[in-house]
Amino acid sequence: MSASPPLFPLEVHDLTVSYHTKPVLYGVDLQIEEGSLVGVIGPNGAGKSTLIKTIMGIVPPSGGWVKIFGQKGKKAYTRVGYVPQRESVDWDFPVSVLDVVLMGRFAHVGWLKRVSKKDRSIACECLEKVNMLSFADRQIGKLSGGQQQRVFLARALAQESDLYLMDEPFSGVDAVTENAIIELLRELKNNGKTLLVVHHDLSNAKDYFDQLILLNMRLIAHGKREDTFTKELLQKTYGGRLTVFTEIAGQAASSQTSNQFPQKHL
């Protein structure tokens, strides 16, 4: 018997996406190993969200393919947990915090069955983990940005997935929440889960993730943070816009400082 090739949680081959005729992603190849915490960085309009959405099958690719745990198509998605971008959620929707987290359990509940007590207690545990249990009955629109983000994180936890895709989980959250979230991501990673996280704050990207994907329409680089968070590669990714980032790029080369750099996106 020949040894089977390693099964990647996520494998993307020659992925090309275009809106109308304008290409957004071009020939992206990726192989993500199990148990890695990967940050996706790149300038605005680089196709970071598009990459995640295409992997999830929301945006149809114009070429290439995506495999999740070696599978293509609908069945593969049942092992994926997804944290949407905050802007894409309808916060007026009549659901409570607990309702949202329970939705994460639906994959474990039969088609015609109702959520069980066990699902409920798992949902509550997940809320407890993100420190949101006391808000369980609150309508989701009546929360702060950081709290909203934590609810969706709790939902992803409740899904008990093996691969997590997160679209800017740190946007609009306070420093305390940000720390809590990164702790949680590391814990998931240590439990053997694989995480792909879209991130736009270069100042801490290097501290948060052990692997980085640099994206600007094309895949610029993918690898360990030491190898990818370099001046040349960042310059290549951000192009002329890196003037504000040169400082960070300089830091990247030297020490691992985690100073707060004000993020401006133009």
Binding site: M56, I58, K74, Y82, F93, V95, M103, Q159
Partner: peptide
């Protein structure tokens, strides 16, 4: 009554619905 949870989740979050199969 039968399909409440499917109706709810597909109305609220299309992407999650996809990942729920």
């Amino acid at each position: 009554i039968v399909f409440y949870k499917q109706l709810l989740v597909t109305s609220f979050d299309e992407t999650l619905s996809i990942s729920l199969g």
